[in-house]
Design a protein around this nucleic acid. Structure first.
Lengths: 192, 192
DNA sequence: TCCGAAGGAAACCGATCGGTGTACCAGTCA
DNA sequence: TGACTGGTACACCGATCGGTTTCCTTCGGA
């Protein structure tokens, strides 16, 4: 008991702050935007002093970068979706991601790329790599469906995904996700 | 001669500054991002003093709003594309807009919505209205094509357009535009 | 020739940003 | 008990932002 407490407290106290900071940053960056979120607010939200934040993340840009890595593991990812039927796994991409209370904010990676613009080029590269990996995973999933031209279909699906994320944000309406799913269904069945 | 000179000089001197400011702001907002562009840089680029800029635009937010109005008239717009064949007019949407030297920056409206985020809610509304009008115009074009379900096809085309704009930005590659065009072609012919 | 409005240059303002430096405090181990 | 470690609280820094004000020049019209 005491040993367990000691262990967890040691381990938790050493790792918890970083995770709390990352979780706070993720929520704020995504909902409020990267440029609109100051490091002080992140620190306060995480229940941590600014000094500690800068101990774990040498700069805001590093924090943004780690945020993207962090969010990749939480977001609907073709490599993460499990199930037997590859067709179902493919279409599962178009389930509106998570219980999005309030405003739809679209793809966090694309948003980051837009906000980073010419500043923070490392963020731009990170997003680029992520999008490439995503498209490749979709192609792989299409290959598992046994369609004739998985590369072609995969790019189409990725395109629909991106369009749904973007348009649902601009319109603040989830309908594009449904349209995208229906269109993807059509394309998949046609390509079979 | 003198009257003409006097007239043009009067008219030009009174309207030129505003247009120059708007043009400068449009280029900078689009290429460098809205938040990353300061009003001082806009004024300098337009060859105008900050004082004059604030004479024509009472705040940066107003300038952003006018920028969106301004860019709508310059961007490929389904209501603007002329030609006889509605099918060709529809597919013309997917020509990469303009001679985009350097980085692809996607849809200026969507970018503005992302950058505005929770700040500048009037910009968000402006973008929302624009996207709705755009989608409606695409549906109208689909109706002119005589397809069975123009609403459905129109939303699909609008989705592909948005996806191409977003994905080409994230990947910094124009290929999504070609994929979108090809997919649109397939959908149009299928829906005929 | 004088006048008055318009505009340019630049200082200035308050706020906020990312990032540091410092002094203090709570546990832990010897 | 006493040093060490990691964290907090908070003032502080320089830079930059959106926006304002002041002073001065210019130039068209009576």
């Amino acid at each position: 008991m005491t040993t367990t407490e000691a262990e967890t407290s040691r381990a938790a106290d050493r790792r918890a702050p970083r995770d709390r900071i990352l979780a706070a940053a993720a929520g704020l960056f995504y909902r409020e935007g990267i440029n609109a979120t100051g490091v002080e607010l992140i620190a306060d939200t995480a229940g941590v002093s600014k000094r500690t934040l800068y101990k774990y993340f040498p700069s805001k840009t590093h924090l943004v970068d780690q945020y993207l890595t962090y969010v990749r593991e939480k977001v609907v990812d073709p490599r993460t979706v499990d199930g037997d039927d590859p067709r179902e796994r493919l279409l599962a991409l178009f389930a509106v991601s998570g219980p999005v209370a309030g405003r739809l904010r679209g793809c966090p990676f694309h948003n980051a790329a837009v906000e980073a613009a010419s500043a923070m080029p490392e963020v731009t590269e990170h997003v680029q790599a992520e999008k490439r990996a995503f498209a490749e995973a979709v192609v792989e999933l299409c290959r598992a469906c046994g369609v004739e031209d998985p590369r072609r279909l995969g790019r189409q699906i990725a395109l629909l995904y991106e369009g749904a994320a973007a348009l649902s944000t601009s319109l603040d309406d989830a309908e594009p996700w449904a349209v995208a799913r229906a269109t993807a269904e059509t394309l998949v069945d046609r390509a079979g």
